[in-house]
Nucleic acid binder design. Structure first.
Lengths: 240, 240
DNA sequence: CGACAAATTCCATATTACGAAATATTCTTT
DNA sequence: AAAGAATATTTCGTAATATGGAATTTGTCG
């Protein structure tokens, strides 16, 4: 732990809770000695993150701090929220999970518990793409998103409106989970669920397992409910 | 300048510009040696502001960074934007300026160039309150804010609807500036303008001067246009 | 498997952050 | 106006620790 950095952040946190803060107030709240508070604040001011208001009012944060947060996207928040839920699942059941969001023409893997899984059969696939139409992730997303979004995505992918596909999505909605569409030779299989906030799909999660370990039906019966419970819990957390 | 703090912020800034960053990318961008980047990132992760994504993707910021910015209020941004304009004015004309925003039952002084003024007759009044009805600041605010807001404020102050008051506000709107309502004995006088974004008043600024130096009419003729030009420039800047 | 690239650890050293005490400044009281 | 109280700031000898080149590990790819 780098002390001056940790202390500077403690001061920023303290300052973020009030319009402005005096040396003694901040010293009390952070437990730092006043000379240290003065030194660190001067440094923060030099860096442009704080400004001296007056002797009495002390310092306040500047909007440069806002700039630090500008790059944080919603998906990062979703990952932050989902990660502990996913870890808990993997600890309990063993199988690795993948969290994805939809992008241009593919699902992007945003988080994975593969590294935490004893049955980790794939290298970490973070930031990697998954096909929308054939992966469990993509199929879960498409099944549960709005009809409007689904049509737009399918059109963008150049997929013609297919009654068989529509029936497949209807079944996924009925079951609550999707499966990877595999070539006959595939060893690995995925079962996917959607993280939903009302009509909106925020993300999708799939559990990867070895095909020989269980059939699709068994996978659905054993893990479908647990996966959906986790997805719901994540959705609730993400909504604050 | 506290090095580890400055460097940690350089890393945060670099990270805020991308979804995630690798050690080498960040080392290149910040000019820091890789071992230092590793050490500082680990520290940021321990503090909860960054998270390791994977070996390949490196680190990304967490939404804890958002927390730092949540306390920054609009008024702070306004002060950041207005301060240089106000300093320029005071450097050019000499008289000190005060920036205020409306609060519960008073105008709160958010910034002042009194310290920069050669004719500084008052100690810094930051965070101090000014009366809404009799100060130049309050009268400028009330004259230019929406009728709805004006009625609400006046009602809250317990002021009865007064035709004389309405006429005073109309005159302020016509002139573009307000004046302090003084007891005959007051030495100091203020001329106030509003910082407006369409219908909305974001803040108000008053220039303080010694009553014996000029009459209200002279003050308006000499400084009214310059004050309003400054207020407009601030409004434009504040709108980005 | 072997070789390349990137990340990470090590560690001797110089740097510098530290904070108690002294001093300066501002506010309050009489 | 002057003393007293409260708060902010500077000083400075010292202990603590951040530093980064070199060595090592880890992961990737042909």
């Amino acid at each position: 732990m780098i002390e001056p950095v940790a202390r500077s952040f403690a001061l920023l946190e303290a300052l973020s809770r009030r319009p402005s803060g005096t040396i003694s107030t901040l010293a009390d709240e952070t437990g730092l000695p006043p000379p240290t508070v003065v030194r660190l604040l001067k440094n923060l001011a030099e860096l442009g993150y704080a400004t001296r208001v007056s002797r009495d009012a002390g310092y306040r944060l500047t909007d440069k701090v806002l700039g630090l947060a500008q790059g944080i996207r919603f998906v990062d928040r979703l990952v932050d929220v989902a990660a502990p839920h996913m870890s808990r699942f993997t600890r309990k059941y063993g199988w690795p999970l993948y969290l994805g969001t939809i992008g241009d023409r593919a699902i992007t893997i945003r988080h994975s518990t593969a590294a935490e899984s004893p049955m980790s059969f794939e290298r970490a696939a973070l930031q990697k793409k998954s096909p929308i139409l054939s992966s469990a992730l993509g199929r879960a997303w498409l099944a549960f998103c709005s009809g409007e979004e689904r049509r737009a995505v399918l059109k963008h992918l150049g997929a013609k409106s297919d009654p068989a596909l529509a029936a497949a999505f209807a079944k996924i909605r009925r079951d609550g989970y999707s499966f990877t569409v595999l070539p006959r030779t595939g060893r690995l299989q995925g079962i996917g669920v959607a993280i939903r906030d009302g009509e909106r799909v925020m993300g999708c999660i799939s559990m990867r397992f070895i095909r020989s370990a269980m059939s699709e039906t068994e996978a659905g019966a054993r893990y479908g409910a647990a996966l959906n419970a986790m997805a719901d819990a994540i959705a609730v957390d993400a909504a604050r």
